[in-house]
Structures are given as C-alpha cells and as structure tokens.
Design a protein around this nucleic acid. Structure first.
Lengths: 224, 224
DNA sequence: TTTAAACTATGATATTTATCATGTTTTCAT
DNA sequence: ATGAAAACATGATAAATATCATAGTTTAAA
C-alpha cells in the first residue's frame, strides 16, 4: 500500500509530510510481515531508519546486568519505531521483538532526514512525540521506584485493557507470557505468576492458558 | 550577561541559534539567582519557557501515589530545563527544586518558538537532546527495575563523582541529604542511611556530616 | 499422535527492603 | 550561645520479593 493512502500515518509524525514527500518516501520504503517472536533489531545494532507499525505489537527490551530482559515499553499500531536513530548516529539501545504477528514499513534514514530539516511541521511533530515519550518514561521511572510489584502488575493489566481492544471473548487483545509480564514490571517470573494467581483467586481476572480476562477493572485500579 | 557572550550556551541547543536571534533572545530573557531549596516550578504548573542553567544544580521530582518524592533526574550547569514545555502545552509533570545556589536565565516560550520552526539546526539540536534524554530515561527504567537498592545507590555515588568536580578536600561536588539519596534511588530514607553506613564501614566512602568522599570508586562500580 | 520442550503453578526458604521506635547529632534561627 | 527542629543513625521487627525445588500443563515440532 502507498503511504499516501495509509491510514496508520495519521497516528504519527508522518502525518505532517506533504503529499509529494509522501510519494517519494512511499517509493523507497520496504514493507514486511514479521512473525511472533521475530527480532526487528537488537541492542547494539544500527537501525538507519524508522519503522512505521502498520499492525501488531512489539516489545522493546534491554538486557540488564543480571542477565534479565527488561521490557521498557510496548510499541503498537500507529507508532514510529526508531525515531532516535534518525537524529543520532548511535547504535540502538534496545532490542525490538514482535509480540504477535506484525506488519511494518521501513523507511531508510537517508530518505527522511531531509524532511526533518526542510519541513518544520514534521520536525515539530517529532519533537512533540519525543516530549510525550519522555513524560511517559519519567512516569515509569517513578512507578518503578515507588510502587510495589503487585501495583505495577495491576497497572500493566489496566494499561493493556485500555490500550488494546479485547477479543471477541473478552480476553485482553494482546497475549503475553508470564515471563513477559515479569519483564514488564521488573520482577521474577515466579512472582508475576503468583500475583496473577492471587488476582484470579480474588476474582479480579480469569485466565485460560495465556489468555487473561479482566473481570474487575476498578479493583485492579485500586490495588496498593 | 548577554547570551551571545555566555559560554554556557555551548552546552545546549542554544548554540545553534544565529547571532541576531541570540541578541533578540538576550533582550527578553530574565536572569536570576535561586537559593538552595527554592522551587523553580511545581508539578502541574505551566512553565511557558525554558531555563538555561548557568550555575548550580536542581532536582526534578515527582510526587508518587504513596506520598514520597521521587527524584527523576538532576539538572546541571549547561542544561536546558523545560524543553518539553516548548513543544507541548501541557503543564509540567515534575517539580524543580534547587539543590544548591543557582543562577539561571529564563527565556519566554513566545520568544523562542519561532526559532524552532525557522531554524532547522536548532530544532535538530533539540531533537538530539531529547533523544539523548530518552535513552538515559530508558536506562534508568531498567536499573530501577532490575538492580538492588545497594547497586542503585552505588551507581548514584559513581554518577555524582564523574558528573561534578570534587571540591578542594576531595568531597563530592554536590551535597545531598540522605533523604535526597533515598529519593534518587527510590527507597526509604533509613535504607539509604544504612547502606551509606555500610559503604563507610567497608571503606568505600568516608563522610563528614552530609559531605561524602569516594575512597574506592572501583569497588563501588563492582557492587552487586 | 506422540513426545520433548517450554511454560505455568506452588511450596519452602532465604534475602532484601520497609516500617516503627528511639536516641544522637547537626543545623539554624533567635 | 542556646534551644528547637531537622537530619542522621541504628536496632527490632514485619512485609515484600527472590530463589530453589518440584510437579503439572500446554505448546509445538517431529
């Protein structure tokens, strides 16, 4: 599909590009499907472009000193991935792994870098995106430092519930392993499992295999 | 002092402004001294401009749900404070409090916003700054999630040691209370005190009142 | 379909960290 | 200088979390 016609563009900074620029970019972008578990890029690699997420979800992880992967954030449909690589020449600080089947477009850095200096709206939009990401990151820092594991896990469930449409049976729209949950909140896998079991016992959620259904959102929000 | 002649400018995005823009900005900036403990702005307030830190250090804190202040980052000489307020109209997410005596210049948003859209170098510089901040924030998230309190406190000491010049007697160039240390690493004040006592007992640091001297940097780096 | 591997679950225990209590020291305004 | 408030220090205990062990369950490949 051509960028000019792609609705996903409306969700990110690409919406600020002029039509002729979009056509040019459309001509050099590559589009691909990525399977669950596949790696888009690894920590330490050069990205040299941005991914526009057309469909699916991926996790951005970083390997900590103790050998555990921390999931820093989830990147979803409509997001741009790798903006930082556009403005710095550093290698990626994070690894990106598909959480479910994804469709992404890749736009080479060389092709889009000019737009940053020529199109003020575009670069302002990028600035606003980054400012927003920065605010969210600051909030995550505070939560990590101050909230209990149980609170953080409840937060994640609430976040998933509000960010993704539930499936037709009412399960969360994204299916994560217990290890993913642990890596999102920064705890041991066993601890995440234990707390989810407790939430189940208390009637806040129900589970079928990996699938989780929120039964009592308000109680999850109130956990402390 | 005029912005054109101010050396601090070289450390941040303002270095990308043309001379005539600098002169214009210099004409509308306000300069002031801020005492230790004084508040530059509070969470929830509109900033409507950027602070250029000419001298001193301030802490950016956020009140967590449990009533504790978390220090999200320290802002130092040469840094710009409040970039986010330039590109979004949101209220500040953080409170800024002087850690020691500061000298800052304040540039109103209205005066500098034009430069963002007209001067591509300037906005690219801002983008690079934010990209860097974002990378640092991601790393902090991982550390908060995965490292022990002891490791995080050792990290802070190493950070302070490398970021600020020691004073003439070899003490850290910035003096923080034990509560500040606790709020930086996200722990109880008593825990921070205990760990600092332990570091002292093990010969990694020495203390005189609030002042801390690093005796064995390498050991602090190796703590796990 | 079978079978191994991966994931989930839970108990027992150890470790880390928070909380409460109390006393000491430092700081600072009068 | 002096007294009050703030900051520092440390013990005792409780709570949260990690780790190790073991077993059941699901998933996916052969």
């Amino acid at each position: 599909m051509k960028c000019e016609q792609c609705i996903v563009r409306q969700f990110n900074a690409l919406k600020s590009l002029e039509k002729n620029d979009l056509i040019r970019i459309s001509g050099c972008k590559t589009s691909k499907f990525i399977q669950k578990g596949e790696v888009l890029f690894r920590e330490g690699e050069s990205i040299n472009g941005v991914f526009c997420i057309k469909e699916g979800v991926c996790k951005l992880t970083k390997l900590s000193a103790n050998g555990k992967d921390q999931i820093v954030k989830l990147v979803v449909r409509g997001d741009l991935l790798g903006q930082r690589s556009l403005v710095t020449d550093e290698k990626s600080n994070l690894t990106a792994i598909a959480v479910n089947e994804m469709e992404v477009c890749f736009i080479p850095k060389s092709e889009i870098l000019n737009d940053l200096s020529k199109n003020a709206n575009f670069s302002l939009d990028m600035l606003q995106d980054m400012a927003k990401e920065l605010r969210i990151a600051d909030n995550v820092i505070v939560d990590m430092a101050q909230k209990s594991v149980k609170q953080r896990l409840a937060d994640v469930l609430v976040y998933l519930n509000t960010t993704f449409d539930n499936d037709d049976k009412g399960f969360l729209g994204v299916t994560l392993s217990r290890e993913d949950y642990a890596n999102l909140v920064g705890t041991a896998t066993e601890s995440a499992i234990r707390i989810l079991s407790q939430f189940k016992k208390e009637g806040y959620i129900s589970t079928t295999g990996k699938q989780i259904k929120i039964l009592d959102l308000e109680s999850l929000k109130r956990i402390e």
